[in-house]
Design a protein around this nucleic acid. Structure first.
Lengths: 270, 270
DNA sequence: CGCGAGCTTGATGCCGATCAATGCATGTGG
DNA sequence: CCACATGCATTGATCGGCATCAAGCTCGCG
């Protein structure tokens, strides 16, 4: 399911000991656009290396990865990193900021398929056809590390751990998607929104942010698209959660008052 | 989206020239359990090699693959190939038969996440955690080729084409999942069922079956679970399609009368 | 033959969509 | 600094599609 507990467990524990080239924000996840480009792009000294592609790699492997991930790219809020039909050449690791991916059908309907934050990979869809099959849009000013795909394949033929880690990331994306299918196929509005919030906070927490307060980077409409609901329903459900004393909602500022109440909502058939 | 045209185009053209160790069935997709085990398991002589993992591999690579895929396993109708929580060791390629995969949430709801037919891979979900995160159930007596995952990683470090093909298959699964999300998030019952049928027939056609007549291997309830509908709704929608002269429905025997009518249903908003 | 799993069909009700109006925050230009 | 526009969010009223509940029906099988 839309997993609220798994995966990043080992990661969280490690976050404290990082000697990062950017301090990890604590507390609210406020916008922190990077002003100055770091002089050197290097996975080995990145504060996200315990969340991103390098998870579990040895120092030797890490140095190799540094040769691969040589460039970064800034994407302003509202701009696309890539869009459907673009030739696929690289994967992207979110360094700072926040993205959504969406697919659209011939007749113009579109569906948000995911939200990506620091340390998460974008572009895996492109491998299958050598073209991207979705749009990736920055929801705030963002920066990504460019990972040339051909070189990643080359390198992962040399380094078993990197190969395995990459496969895990792809597989994790498949598992995540299955969770979303479960959500879309069988949950009701309240459960969907609860699951969504728990998932978000869990990922934010793994990045050093508060587990109980967050600022949504996306509109009600984007949340609705992701959850298979209309924006009015999302809004109403937020209001209901507030009335029930589960949340405090001020526009995009959310505070979770009753975590276990949210938890109950997703675990209960009803 | 729930792609009804893409991907297997190149494959279809090739199917006629196969020197297969099992003749490809034409016409209705009737149950054809394999009675006698072939003496040798070999991708290089398998009739599915243009649909399965070996797509696009050279003869040299193919022979290597033969060393990898050494065993098969029979799974009777109703039995599971693997289930949630099982230790992950191998991927499986469907040789004959038909499977469903389903995930379930703590509270017992479950969701069919896919149906797999000959040439399609099962078990990719297991890579992320070293444990499977869904159940794979045979919907008819089936046979799969066992692909030990560790060995596949080893081999794909040696053979670029195999590596690339494997990555494409994983990526394709991600793209497919996004299509299902679009379907679950934004389509109405008729569109969902139409998209489902078109997808099924397209895949059957790529395997040499009729494009207009098929036998469903799954119950209305399983279709409903996959499409996020109740079995009654699936049944009613079938009946409606019949009244409208789009289908002929006799229990699980489906004949498509008006292909373009189906097509229109998925391409039209509303 | 009779049982049971799966399918069909009808009647009713509810959840979330839709339509519509208002509120709130941010930004822009006079 | 205010007036206004714009984008997003909230809230209400109504409607409709699908779920739910409840019978029968069909077909395969012991």
């Amino acid at each position: 399911m839309f997993n609220t507990k798994s995966a990043t467990v080992a990661v969280e524990a490690n976050l404290n000991q990082l000697s990062a080239d950017q301090p990890i924000m604590r507390g609210m996840n406020t916008v922190t656009p990077i002003k100055i480009e770091p002089f050197k792009v290097a996975c080995s000294s990145c504060n996200l290396r315990e969340l991103c592609l390098p998870v579990g790699l040895s120092n030797a492997d890490l140095n190799q990865l540094d040769t691969l991930v040589a460039t970064r790219r800034n994407v302003n809020r509202g701009d696309t990193l890539f869009r459907t039909g673009d030739v696929f050449q690289s994967l992207y690791a979110v360094r700072t900021g926040f993205f959504k991916t969406c697919v659209s059908s011939e007749d113009g309907r579109d569906q948000v398929t995911g939200f990506q934050m620091a340390g998460e990979l974008l572009g895996l869809d492109g491998i299958s056809n050598d073209r991207h099959s979705c749009d990736a849009v920055a929801l705030e000013d963002s920066q990504v590390c460019v990972i040339p795909y051909g070189q990643l394949e080359d390198l992962s033929r040399e380094f078993t751990d990197l190969q395995h880690q990459f496969h895990k990331i792809m597989s994790r994306e498949i598992v995540r998607d299955h969770g979303v299918m479960l959500l879309l196929g069988s949950m009701r509005a309240e459960e969907r929104l609860a699951a969504f919030l728990l998932n978000l906070t869990q990922r934010l927490q793994a990045r050093g942010f508060s587990a109980s307060a967050l600022v949504l980077r996306m509109t009600r409409e984007e949340i609705g698209s992701y959850l298979g609901l209309k924006l009015e329903t999302v809004s109403r459900t937020f209001s209901k959660f507030q009335e029930d004393g589960i949340l405090e909602v001020k526009q995009r500022q959310i505070r979770i008052i009753d975590q276990s109440g949210l938890q109950k909502l997703v675990n209960t058939t009803c």
